[in-house]
Simulated assay, not measured.
Amino acid sequence: MRHLARLAAASAILCLSAAPAFADKYPVAVFSGLDKTTARVTSFSVKVDEPAQFGSLEVLVRACDKRPPEEPPQTAAFLEIRQIDRDDDSVQPAPIFEGWMFAESPGLNGLEHPVYDIWVTDCKTASGGASTGSE
């Protein structure tokens, strides 16, 4: 019986970590980022497969999926986040985060960093200029 409970728990985790079912693909992910040293929240957009910088972090979106309006809401982005070493540009740093982030559950699989918090808020079809401000 314990084996069945473990199997059910593993299945639930796999379902939560997978991309949204029947989701539409979008070319741009929208994020909010918190700089903990200044307490400033910044909203910014990142195109899929084009790295963007937030503070000393490089954000690379691999996919941004969003369910259609008639489905239960679920927006997810698969991304890689790297810490940029300003002293050594020759070495590509390893990702400090790699995985899916979910807009409806920002605490489920978030970036754990001493200076920055980043969470996905939306997927969209076009990128606009990054806006700065509190949310």
Rank of each mutant, 00 (worst) to 15 (best):
F22G: 08
A23N: 01
D88Q: 13
E50H: 10
K47P: 06
S105P: 01
P73Y: 00
V30W: 06
P68N: 03
G107D: 06
S131Y: 03
A5S: 13
V48N: 01
I81Q: 07
K124G: 10
V91Y: 12
T75P: 11
P114K: 00
T121I: 15
S131H: 12
R86P: 06
A63L: 03
K66P: 12
S134D: 08
S134M: 13
K25F: 08
N109L: 13
A23Y: 05
A5P: 03
A52N: 12
R86S: 08
V59T: 11
V115S: 05
Q53G: 08
V91K: 15
A12D: 09
R82I: 05
E80C: 01
F78D: 08
E58A: 09
V30M: 11
L34K: 04
R6D: 09
P106K: 06
P95D: 07
A18N: 09
D88P: 03
I96H: 06
D88L: 13
K124T: 12
A10I: 10
E50K: 14
G33K: 13
I13S: 02
A63Q: 15
D87L: 14
K25W: 06
S105D: 04
H3C: 10
E98Y: 10
L14R: 13
P73A: 03
T121G: 12
I81E: 04
C15W: 03
V48A: 03
V59H: 13
E70Q: 15
I118W: 02
V61Q: 03
S11I: 06
I81H: 11
D49H: 15
L4S: 04
L4N: 12
S17C: 10
A23Q: 01
V41T: 15
K36N: 08
G133N: 07
A9K: 15
Y116H: 15
F54E: 05
Q83Y: 07
E104Q: 14
S56K: 11
M101R: 11
L79Q: 00
S105Y: 09
C64F: 00
A94H: 06
D85F: 03
A130T: 03
S131T: 02
G128I: 01
P72C: 00
V48H: 02
W100I: 05
C15A: 06
G107E: 03
W100N: 07
V91L: 13
T132V: 04
L57M: 08
A12P: 02
S131M: 08
G107S: 05
F102T: 10
D87R: 10
L14V: 05
E98R: 14
A18L: 05
E70S: 13
F44P: 13
D24L: 14
I118N: 09
I96N: 03
A126E: 14
S134E: 15
I118H: 10
H3M: 11
T132S: 12
A63S: 14
D89C: 01
A5V: 11
D24H: 13
W119M: 06
D122L: 00
D49S: 15
D35A: 05
A63F: 15
P106D: 05
L57W: 07
